[in-house]
């Protein structure tokens, strides 16, 4: 009897320690997104350049990198040099495009951001009321989603994209070298 209680106590301690150890390994920024492996939510929204609207459905048949950002976002400044480079990659390929979604922002703020950090040249949705951002389950900025040519969300990246991300993460998906979803 005495020993059985000792075993129960020891087992409880082991379970608690295992839960703590598992929890310490989690990255609090990586909140799993339920939209991965699902059809991308379409949007038709005003373009930041004031030139009509942008619809995600128009890009079906191409890989789309949907990048949520805002001129108020500090991490977006650190991400921007890579997006300038990635825009060149996108211009050189006919199967990959980038669409920016400037949310919770003003046109003046976005233009000031481009004049300070450079204009990557691709189109941006203007989403001041965060309707598109909320529809995509976005928490903060920057957040990026890779959508495949059939319109399926293949992966989500929380935080700034880094130099080499396209070759390391996106390209294996585009070349079909990865069987699964996510990074």
């Amino acid at each position: 009897m005495k020993n059985s209680w000792k075993i129960v106590l020891l087992l409880s301690l082991v379970v608690i320690m295992a839960l703590f150890a598992g929890g310490l390994g989690n990255n609090p920024r990586d909140i799993p997104s339920p939209i991965i492996n699902k059809s991308a939510s379409n949007f038709t929204a005003q373009a930041l350049d004031g030139n009509g609207e942008i619809s995600l459905a128009d890009y079906k048949g191409k890989w789309v990198l949907l990048n949520f950002w805002g001129s108020w976002c500090v991490s977006c400044v650190s991400e921007h040099p890579y997006l300038m480079e990635l825009a060149k990659v996108a211009r050189g390929r006919d199967d990959f495009v980038i669409i920016g979604v400037d949310f919770r922002d003003t046109v003046e703020g976005a233009n000031s951001f481009f004049s300070r950090h450079g204009d990557p040249g691709y189109r941006h949705v203007f989403d001041p009321k965060q309707k598109v951002a909320i529809d995509w389950g976005v928490y903060g900025a920057p957040e990026s989603f890779l959508i495949d040519p059939t319109g399926m969300v293949r992966l989500k990246h929380t935080g700034p994209l880094y130099f080499g991300w396209f070759e390391k993460v996106a390209l294996p998906h585009i070349q079909g070298k990865t069987g699964g979803f996510g990074e």
């Binding site: 339920p34 939209i35 389950g137």
Partner: peptide
Amino acid sequence: FFQRYGDY
């Protein structure tokens, strides 16, 4: 909201 943000 659940479909977009999950259980969280």
